[in-house]
Design a protein around this nucleic acid. Structure first.
Length: 607
DNA sequence: TCTATATCACCC
DNA sequence: AAACGGGTGATATAGA
């Protein structure tokens, strides 16, 4: 019987896998080492034996604990091996993040870094790098290499045990297991991936440079500020001088090349407008390393718990939801399937309302249109006003709500809504007067952080706020971090309900289902998202919106439609046809067999 | 030629 | 002094 935190487990298994994971592919397992703390039992298994096992060689039931560092990797290996996932997962990466979040660490958040910060030493990081390379290289391996890899794998398990003993006194096991549960979910999401129109992607990649060249050639002939595809500051400066245009400069003395300045300057000097458009277009053309596997699905590390607020932080480069929105048109369900993008409506506003208990804010959220209702509550528009009758007022109150969420000041808000500072000040004042209880609450939160030196969410995601923290961060933390809790919980529910979850996107998720099951899946997902919000917000339920994408349609975001159409037009000229037939979905969709799914778990509440 | 820095743009 | 939260990544240029 081994006590971990305040709970006792029959067995505690420390596990590490070595694997290789080419971009966009599920991991290929190389080897595994597992140690059990109580009995001292040690297991070392090479790939060829692992794939024969139908069940992990360690206990994964209710009264045992699975411990790993960055457990989504180990869980990914389980899924690849068709093994069920452990009931109780303790991820020391996540717990170390939570234990030190907000502090400056001597050696980062790797296992090695965690050991160092507890005054322990692991193996040399140069050796680690060599072995990691060896695992990534893939087989075949010599007997010596196999031994080396297993030894290396085992050394990490030993390091993990040392870390566990050090961090054990700080563990809040019920909550740590909720976080571990999300790491299981994250592994399943990564395992699933997002279906991609690979023909379109190939076409885009093939003509990527040509498209940019064409766009530049069309416009730059009038300016001569590009060298190949590089915008040259010096050439632009020369052009400005020749055209006698005084251009704003940064404090450093360099020309201010932000789009904001381009926009303003285009008003007084219309001839800079086309150049501005070109720069905007080119900046939306970044698609370097979208990682798509052989099965035509976009997969990458979600980097769960990476951000200070506990959000996922996948690479913008590899993740289809990273680059400009028009590129989401590459998301396309395979034949017979559909997708749905489901997001919480005004999530942060709802969280602020619920956690502060501000009755007017709650009423505004429940009205269905918080921005319009806010304007009414502030007596700025008549009680019978609508979204259409008072469009611009609604936009201003909306901007004000967002400004408050980010701690924006009157000057920035004024600029944002293109109004005098007095107007912005007035809007912010109305917010403070209308939502008095919210402001009392949020000020108490900020004071608490200043006094105690840390903040945490309802499920115990912690951040240290020592030193001179940015007060706007403190003010935003409860909304963003509890929003992240909500998303993680919803993802767990959705995965555990057997729904194919493809991606989390901060306040939204993308799911997939056969066309005839899609609406049911969406309905269930919406219920589960409401459930998750109620758990985080003590009974308060947030609404969700769903957008469907049914084969043969592709994902389309209104904001990116113009760009997508413009690019399609150019592609048409290059290739002569708009699209190729869809390839068959290569292993595009297989539902995880029921016996492999994580069972639905109860959750723990309180604080 | 490579790296570091500043700046900017994208996402929620 | 200024004051938009959390991020990742690309780009242009300066400097080693």
């Amino acid at each position: 019987m081994i006590p971990i935190g305040k709970r006792v487990f029959r067995e505690v298994w420390l596990v590490d896998f070595e694997f290789s994971a080419p971009p966009g592919e599920q991991p290929s397992v190389v080897c595994m080492v597992a140690h059990e703390i109580g009995s001292g039992k040690r297991i070392r298994v090479w790939q060829d034996e692992l794939i024969k096992l139908k069940w992990p060689p360690y206990a994964i039931c209710n009264d045992t604990l699975f411990v790993a560092y960055y457990a989504s990797a180990e869980m990914g290996c389980h899924l690849k091996l068709n093994w069920p996932l452990p009931v109780n997962v303790l991820d020391l990466y996540v717990e170390f993040r939570n234990h030190t979040n907000g502090l400056t660490l001597p050696c980062g958040t790797s296992l090695l870094g965690a050991l160092v910060s507890f005054g322990l030493s692991g193996i040399e990081s140069s050796e680690k790098e060599t072995m990691r390379q060896l695992a990534m290289r893939g087989g075949p391996y010599t007997q010596k290499e196999k031994e080396d890899l297993l030894n290396y794998c085992e050394s990490d398990v030993i390091a993990l045990e040392k870390l566990l003993l050090k961090i054990n006194p700080f563990l809040d096991i019920p909550r740590a297991l909720i976080r571990g549960r999300y790491m299981k979910t994250a592994a399943q999401i990564e395992h699933n991936g997002i279906p991609i129109d690979v023909n379109k992607l190939a076409l885009l990649r093939k003509h990527w440079i040509e498209i940019q060249d064409k766009l530049i050639a069309e416009i730059d002939s009038e300016y001569g500020v590009f060298d190949q595809r590089t915008f040259k500051y010096s050439l632009f400066a020369a052009w400005l001088q020749k055209n006698e245009i005084p251009w704003p400069r940064l404090l450093s003395g360099k020309l201010d090349l932000s789009d904001e300045v381009f926009k303003e300057m285009a008003r007084s000097y219309p001839k800079v407008a086309p150049l501005r458009e070109l720069r905007v277009t080119l900046s939306q053309m970044r698609l370097a390393e979208l990682s798509v596997g052989q099965d035509n699905r976009n997969r990458c590390l979600l980097s769960a718990f990476r951000s200070r607020t506990g959000r996922n932080q996948p690479s913008n480069n590899q993740f289809i939801f990273g680059p400009a929105v028009w590129l989401r048109s590459l998301i396309k369900p395979s034949s017979g399937y559909g997708l749905a993008y489901i997001d919480w409506s005004q999530q942060e506003f709802g969280i602020a309302a619920a956690l502060s208990g501000d009755s007017l804010m709650i009423k505004a959220y429940q009205s269905g249109d918080p921005y319009l209702e806010f304007a009414k509550q502030a007596n700025a528009i008549p009680i019978n006003a609508t979204k259409t009758s008072h469009k611009s007022e609604r936009e201003q109150f909306k901007a004000c709500v967002l400004a408050v969420q980010y701690g924006m000041g009157a000057d920035s808000l004024a600029q944002r809504i293109n109004q005098p500072v007095a107007k912005a000040r007035e809007l912010l004042r109305l917010h403070k007067e209308t939502y008095k209880q919210f402001w009392e609450w949020i000020e108490a939160v900020v004071n608490y952080a200043m006094l105690i030196g840390r903040l945490h969410t309802v499920f115990g995601w912690n951040v240290y706020t020592e030193g001179s923290p940015n007060p706007r961060f403190l003010q935003n933390f409860p909304m963003q971090a509890n929003g992240a809790e909500m998303l993680r919980l919803a993802c767990c529910f959705v995965i555990e309900a057997g729904i194919k979850l493809c991606a989390p996107v901060h306040d939204a998720i993308l799911i997939e289902a056969p066309l005839n099951e899609l609406e049911q899946a969406v309905q269930t997902t919406q219920q589960l998202m409401a459930e998750a919000s109620a758990i985080v917000l003590n009974g308060f339920r947030l609404r969700t919106d769903a957008t469907y994408i049914r084969y043969p349609d592709h994902y389309e975001d209104e904001r990116g439609k113009k760009m997508r159409e413009a690019i399609d037009k150019i592609l048409l000229k290059f290739s002569g046809k708009s699209s190729h037939p869809d390839p068959p979905g290569v292993g595009a969709y297989e539902t995880l067999p029921a016996h492999l799914r994580t069972p639905v778990q109860s959750y723990y509440l309180s604080i």
